[in-house]
């Protein structure tokens, strides 16, 4: 098992390193404190959204509303949290609770998460459009300061990614509760037989996803300084791709928080790399898909080799 866990992280890490080396070779200017921050700072909200998605995939569900949810959080952060911090905070907390309730409902009524979250994405989108009908708002000062801080040694983007990876690693992999949560995804019935209240665990997993979704939206506004209702729609697919790229699997219970963060960084870097290559935008989406397939193929090859051995 420990070998598997190690394998899980080696491949995403190697993909990131290879891509990073290629980027540095093509654009030596990126190889600096300033350059690394420019290259990766927008990956921080994506990494947080990817962790949110990972929480859902961990319990064997999938969340198609991450992008709309992060957009909504961004809209609230740029308006209410800035103008009336208490009300804004209350709204964000309410969103997290809603997410937890959504998890409980999905489990209690045995609904397909893919349908519920798809439906909820329209609800989030509608509320976001209601709050911010046209783009605007502004980032709370403290958030902007936090996202543009210049720590010594390594740039903010790198420090933040490491912090996110370490914290979620302890939360999901090392803690007892994290182990049970992964168990829910792996085999909910046996967790239930062991005396755990699965409905509460599912609510917890969804609540955690909501929490990280909220953090993603706030981080995003700290970087962009304002929001619009469509700002993060592409995060839905990016976050799913990030989880899978980082070694997670759709079968539930098999996830890697560190891998998910690395997956998010890799996806961000991949699009920058393609842009440095001066590839026509018509080909870029396809090329991104090709990178994804390449990494997944490599994983399959590794796993087969391991099975043989």
């Amino acid at each position: 098992m420990s070998l598997l866990a190690r394998y899980r992280i080696i491949l995403p890490a190697v993909s990131l390193a290879v891509l990073l080396a290629a980027t540095f070779w093509m654009q030596p200017r990126a190889m600096s404190y300033f350059g690394l921050n420019l290259l990766f700072n927008l990956a921080v909200p994506i990494a947080l959204a990817t962790i949110a998605q990972m929480m859902i995939i961990m319990v064997n569900d999938i969340d198609l509303s991450v992008g709309a949810f992060v957009s909504l959080v961004a809209c609230i952060t740029a308006t209410f949290l800035n103008d009336a911090p208490v009300l804004g905070l209350a709204m964000l907390l309410a969103l997290i609770v809603t997410y937890a309730v959504m998890g409980a409902v999905i489990h209690a009524l045995d609904l397909p998460a893919i349908v519920v979250t798809l439906g909820m994405s329209f609800v989030w989108g509608g509320i976001a459009l209601f709050i911010l009908p046209s783009p605007g708002g502004s980032s709370p000062g403290w958030l902007r300061t936090l996202m543009t801080v210049k720590p010594p040694l390594a740039p903010m983007a790198v420090v933040a990614s490491v912090v996110i990876a370490v914290v979620t690693h302890f939360l999901v992999i090392r803690s007892g509760l994290g182990t049970v949560l992964r168990g829910v995804g792996g085999n909910a019935r046996s967790v239930q037989r062991a005396g755990w209240p699965v409905i509460r665990l599912k609510a917890l997993a969804y609540g955690l996803a909501g929490l990280f979704g909220v953090l993603a939206g706030m981080a995003l506004v700290g970087l962009t300084t304002s929001a619009d209702a469509n700002i993060a729609l592409r995060y839905t697919l990016l976050s799913i791709a990030g989880v899978i790229l980082g070694g997670g699997e759709f079968t539930g219970g098999k996830v890697s928080p560190t891998g998910a963060v690395i997956g998010a960084l890799t996806l961000t870097l991949a699009s920058s790399f393609l842009s440095f290559l001066r590839l026509s935008p018509d080909w870029q989406i396809g090329a991104q898909g090709a990178i994804l397939i390449l990494v997944l193929t490599a994983r399959l090859v590794f796993r087969q080799k391991r099975a043989e051995a």
Binding site: L39, L42, N230, R234, S271, S272, F276, R278, P281
Partner: peptide, 23 residues
Amino acid sequence: DAYTTSENQATEQAAQIQNMILQ
């Protein structure tokens, strides 16, 4: 040179602008 983002998203374009600084 002309660059176009593939998905018409602000976050993607922000990354594109940051890349241009690096370029």
